[in-house]
Design a protein around this nucleic acid. Structure first.
Lengths: 251, 251
DNA sequence: GCACTACCTTGATATGAATCAAAGCTATAA
DNA sequence: TTATAGCTTTGATTCATATCAAGGTAGTGC
């Protein structure tokens, strides 16, 4: 199976394109973040064989919707997704952003139904991992089982971080924490920790952090005035990362 | 191994005590909520054999603390626990309450370190499930593996519910949602859905819901004035469950 | 039984973020 | 290029909840 040439915010230009052309877990540069971590190379090949790589998901298209039958979890190879739930009165709640190397869709396991929707914020390439195959393989490969348990547990701790943030922190602290989280995730992927483009809108940020757009915008302005950030629309430069940590009050 | 006679809010009197005296998964009345669900009876016995039942945990004692090495997850057999994290500036964030039949400690899997602390809100009996044994057994019993994946996924969706609640809902809505959640969990355990004793303090409720004690107290007073609740300290009677659902705005 | 402590309630005031309002900016399509 | 629709910023005002303050209540141990 071949993958059409794509060009996303994450994979810049031709090198990445040829790279994406015939991705396998064994040569994927994200494999230290994603599932294959800690697998032997023959095991990686087995995992590789169950993974389906389909054509890229275009911006603002859905990967799945709340209520859809759960079949697979997905590893993000490039691009960004947001996960969100729709409340009974029709409002949206963004529950997470997913960057390359991260796994989306694990909340569908409990009921065999996706508990949230997932939508591409930019053109994104994904590895689909059919869950029944993953389960089968996990019984054969204890280290895969363990790794998947760990990924789910990490999702739980990430959600608990967010709960604390929403429950205890001011608008400035919340925005600072999100920027630091993106910064950390970028450096794990060997990208700049201080200079990046936000893939999501201010509305999405506010929604995720329990704030209105106006408040998010004001926080950005304030931080810019404090010379902690340089903000040019979605382009962010962290000028003073220690200052930002100070604002976030997170060790 | 024998279990001392205990008397908790959940197990009322002698019947429960003799019942608890020699608990096995096969005869535990919570086994439809907990791990053994969907296991064959010989499989249940195997699971039973790895579970350790120690003496009850007294009120306000810790089951584990944030940072402790992760060894086991725990099923609550009676009593109630709260899980909480301590923020860098020393404040507490309650991340969940755990009732009989529920599993606590899954957030420790990702780092082999407990990401939160767990403390008994009243004397509680627990089943300790050593995680390496659970992993080993899971590779042999696909339905156990699946069930544990589902339990973890359920923890994720529960956290996402809370995120939405904190991010979008008013004080009244949050408190109403918590009461309805406790009510639902009670009826799963064949207890009254409308009349129960809250095991946690107002401080804990407020902390969990991102509110101050004073606000929680005011919400209770307000709901009492609206004849939705009868509140007598920790004793709660839901007088109008539809009204409460109306307040919660949850379908 | 009494004292102590922790917990809970209620009132008055302050404040951070929401809401309302309007204008500027960006990107996409014709 | 202009039109258009969505996104972002900034300002003025409002409001829900926090904070401050004080008194009441329940449970525990001596």
């Amino acid at each position: 199976m071949t993958i059409p040439i794509i060009n996303t915010g994450d994979s810049s230009g031709l090198v990445a394109c040829t790279h994406d052309y015939q991705v396998r877990c064994g040569n994927c540069r994200l494999n230290s973040l994603c599932l294959p971590l800690a697998l032997e190379s023959e095991d990686i090949e087995q995992l590789d064989s169950i993974i389906q790589r389909s054509k890229p998901l275009q911006k603002s298209n859905h990967l799945y919707r709340e209520g859809d039958a759960f079949q697979s979890v997905f590893a993000v190879r490039s691009g960004t997704l947001k996960a969100y739930k729709t409340t009974d009165d029709g409002r949206e709640q963004v529950t997470g952003f997913y960057f390359p190397g991260e796994i989306v869709g694990m909340d569908g396991i409990s009921n065999n139904t996706h508990a949230s929707s997932a939508k591409a914020l930019e053109t994104s390439a994904l590895c689909e991992i059919p869950f029944t195959s993953l389960e089968r393989l996990s019984t054969l490969m204890p280290s895969l089982q363990r790794h998947f348990f760990q990924l789910m547990s990490r999702e739980i701790t990430a959600d608990q971080q967010l709960i604390t943030l929403l429950s205890k922190n001011s608008a400035d602290e919340r925005v600072a924490a999100l920027l630091l989280s993106i910064s950390t995730r970028n450096s794990r992927r060997k990208l700049s920790a201080t200079h990046f483009r936000l893939p999501m809108s201010r509305v999405d940020i506010g929604n995720y952090l329990g704030l209105t757009v106006e408040t998010v915008s004001r926080v950005f302005s304030r931080m810019q005035k404090m010379d902690v950030l340089r903000v040019d629309n979605k382009e962010i430069e962290i000028l003073d990362i220690e200052g930002l940590r100070g604002v976030a009050e997170i060790g």
